[in-house]
Design a protein around this nucleic acid. Structure first.
Lengths: 344, 344
DNA sequence: ATGAAAGCGCTAACAA
DNA sequence: TTGTTAGCGCTTTCAT
């Protein structure tokens, strides 16, 4: 039987106090070792380290947070109402990179969906109450005020994708959308295509703008090239519609660059219905190099982004910001790559 | 200028003590109100509530955890080495459901990737150190010992997908894979198909087994039906290979049920190469109703699972287990639905 | 370089 | 029903 009827309030796992006793030093010294302070004698250092190993000591997160006023937690906010984000490998890959990088630190990754204004409010409150030290924001539309609000609530923010309004000093990670689009378009031109269309993404997101700009840049000084632009919204249906429109405007077009794989897939469908062969009659290139690119018929040539690395860079950026809140960090723009398959 | 050169160690946000003073009660009473204790006089209740509102008080998570020995955090562990998990909408949708349900409580959602044994060890340590109160495990293969280990480390676990070895008392949420497969196969039979093949998923996951069993059950008492089984691994390439094999074994087959959309897409490709028309010559049905199903040509008829609801149920299950650790909860099996498109 | 001690904000046992 | 109080495990002055 137990020695006391009362249930103990302690967890039973070793505390810093026990480590200190084991190492015959004070709790203060033990703490210094745990936190890597330099002001510790080699002798004490070793004694404490041995004790920690022997006892299997692990710091208590809550106790540490309580005194340091830090939470050691970063919040990943997915700000997207549609399920669509998730249909793309983008999210998973990004999280994998994030998680990888964060696991080298003591930071925890908290996840939260926040599409509504009410949920955005909850994010701000979390920050204001010190429950999170920093925030990572993904898939933000237009010029959402959320990043600003979080910053004024007192936590650093990093973004995926260049924000529309260039909000001061909020660092972000992005793929080089313009260069990717340029490469795709130039590739089409190099193949001898001369009536090259593009289907754009929504223009309230930087990715949409940049990809259109890349297309334009590629064709800028080219002569004898017909340019054609149709609006899409990144979704498949819009790609199909846009393609039909393009075909009616220019039945003789011989290439199309779509700003997303979904739209490219839609375009493929419209082209098939119209009796055009791909890539013989019309070459098609998409963007994202998603799983889908390998599943269309013909398989899509597409611009791929290093999503996992983007996740890692995102984490690094936030960690840097956490260490030095006042540092002004430049955006990280990662290169894209054209993956050639059957459609172009 | 500030009144004191020393930087204060306090966060500046209101504490329970301040609430108590404002309400002219003791900290104990204030605490009771915050935690919903019934033993509080109406008068005190109101006074404290008013003070809370006035001061904008929010409990300090770290302080509470420290004394209660609970973390108010649940951990979502993604145990999958491939990126493949994420290519499917499954994950995102699940997280959405989880997140939705959890937001009605004070529980935080922590995310962690853990494919390697080393990372699994980290999960156990997190549990053992009281950093998480409960664990949600997704995409577990074979009979991984992780759930058991977590339980013996002292935290409740819930799973997505029936575990292979029926580990005692670990509740799980799953789609009714067998019924879904049965419905798909019966549908094919009802359409007059009589040489019905299936492409299986890996047989080290319950979903793989159950879907095969569903196929068998559907055809059990049917007479004049040719049955054909080919092994796949849920991936697209395996679907293509399996389909080729099936065609060589039975050139006259007229239907195939694939245990995943990816495999169905592979099958579609093989069928096209072989010159078979879908659905005219061969009807095809997939499983998952993923984004891809809408992107193949022809579009895939597929069995859909209520993934978001699965996420919600998962959260509910864990919450129940947290409240009553000894309760033995039955699995939650959710119905599937056959979504008819062009391929069958 | 080290020890002693003062809390961080909160809950829960106990006394009243 | 309420107030008082003893910690939860840790970091960080301040003194030595």
């Amino acid at each position: 039987m137990t020695e006391n009827g009362r249930r103990p309030r302690t967890s039973g796992r070793p505390t810093l106090e026990q480590v200190a006793v084991e190492a015959s030093v004070s709790r203060g010294t033990a703490s210094r070792v745990v936190n890597g302070s330099l002001e510790v004698s080699p002798w004490a250092l070793k004694a404490v380290q041995d004790a920690i190993r022997k006892l299997g000591y692990v710091p208590n997160h809550a106790a540490r947070s309580l005194v340091t006023q830090r939470s050691d937690t970063v919040l990943l906010v997915v700000s997207e109402s549609e399920d669509r984000v998730f249909d793309e490998p983008f999210f998973g890959s990004l999280v994998r990179g994030l998680s990888q990088e964060l696991s080298t630190t003591s930071l925890q990754l908290n996840l939260m969906m926040a599409s509504t204004a009410r949920q955005h409010g909850r994010v701000e409150q979390l920050v204001r109450n010190g429950h999170v030290d920093g925030v990572i924001l993904i898939s933000l539309h237009g010029d959402d005020p959320l990043p600003q609000n979080i910053v004024s609530a007192g936590a650093p923010v990093v973004l995926t994708g260049r924000p529309m309004s260039d909000i001061g000093a909020v660092p972000y990670v992005d793929a080089d959308n313009e260069a990717g689009a340029r490469a795709a378009t130039e590739y089409l031109h190099r193949q001898g295509r001369r009536r090259i269309a593009t289907i754009t993404g929504t223009q309230d997101m930087a990715a949409g703008l940049d990809r259109l700009n890349g297309y334009r840049a590629a064709l800028k000084s080219k002569r004898g090239v017909t340019r054609l632009v149709a609006q899409g919204d990144f979704g498949q249906a819009s790609g199909e519609t846009a393609m039909r429109e393009l075909l009616s405007r220019a039945p003789d077009l011989d290439a199309v660059f779509a700003a997303s794989d979904l739209m490219a897939a839609g375009a493929l469908r419209a082209l098939r219905v119209a009796g055009r062969r791909v890539p013989d009659d019309v070459a098609v290139i998409g963007f994202d190099d998603s799983e889908m690119a390998r599943n269309t018929d013909p398989q899509l040539t597409s611009v791929s982004q290093p999503t996992q690395q983007m996740g890692r860079e995102l984490a690094k950026l936030l960690i840097a910001k956490l260490r030095e809140p006042d540092a002004s960090l430049p955006p990280v723009i990662l290169p894209t790559e054209l993956v050639c398959r059957e459609s172009a």
